[in-house]
Nucleic acid binder design. Structure first.
Lengths: 152, 152
DNA sequence: ACTGAAATGGCGCGACC
DNA sequence: GGTCGCGCCATTTCAGT
């Protein structure tokens, strides 16, 4: 179940092109098709490859705004934390959420169609979650880099 | 060039499964195969679909640490900004980088194999970029949510 | 046991309506 | 936007080392 050299090469390439043909992949890493295919299948089955997705340009589909929100909770009890995280999971605008150290409890990246619609999200959803004490918003002005590739 | 109902349905599905077969996609949205395929191709050609990728579980390949770094520059001149952004583009550990408002200039999400290797990255790379004045690091303790799907 | 080779079935793709 | 047909690739099975 350890990741060897071949697996790393496979992952490196599939992270760049999720639709790369098995034939080409096999050629590139220097294996024939069936062992290559088996390795890919194994990486999928063990959830090392979580999923294959199409990445959509947010601005092109009407979501030009990305916002970071730092969220502090009243208390960090198991129930309080679970309630917050469950709520977050149901909000598709929340693209990322991490539990963090420091004076806030969570960092969220939220996408929105406009600053107004973010305001609405804030008022109607985020601030209404039980246990949320304080939210600090950071507006992004420009995306500089967005990568999904782990640097193997 | 406007995104209609069909295109939205296509994007919604390909964001969830980038390898969904055209045949199935066509069935689901209620079109036959070739118009469906033509639409997908158009979305690709206009870069509304940026790319297809495999998402890899970071912890499973030895990158369990995600860190947010807030970076302030000495000055925000065109040259200074360009120099920083160029440097960032060459660091594969930097998964995301946004230009932001507020007392810092950039927010970065960085992946690392350990806190130590992040320290090394900080010392040997980030702080050495010309024009970087100040960096504030926020360690993440747990990923709660990570989505790449724009909520169409 | 894991790799490499061959055959079969299905899908994507492009021409045309 | 739909229909049809060709070619290519994924998959599975089998033999070899």
């Amino acid at each position: 179940m350890s990741i060897d050299k071949f697996d790393k090469e496979i992952l490196r390439r599939l992270q760049k092109d999720g639709k790369k043909q098995n034939k080409d992949l096999a050629d590139e890493i220097g294996l024939s098709q069936s062992p290559c295919s088996r390795r890919v299948k194994h990486l999928e089955d063990t959830n090392i490859i979580r999923e294959y997705v199409a990445l959509v340009e947010p601005a092109a589909v009407g979501f030009p705004i990305s916002i970071y929100a730092n969220v502090a909770l009243d208390k960090q009890t198991k129930e309080s934390v679970k309630h917050f995280e469950d709520a977050i999971m149901n909000y598709p605008e929340v693209m990322e959420c991490y539990l963090v150290t420091g004076k806030y409890d969570y960092i969220l990246r939220i996408v929105a169609q406009s600053i107004d619609s973010y305001q609405t999200f804030l008022m109607d959803k985020l601030t209404l979650i039980e246990g949320v004490k304080n939210i600090q918003t950071t507006i992004t002005m420009k995306p500089v880099k967005y990568s999904t590739s782990i640097p193997l």
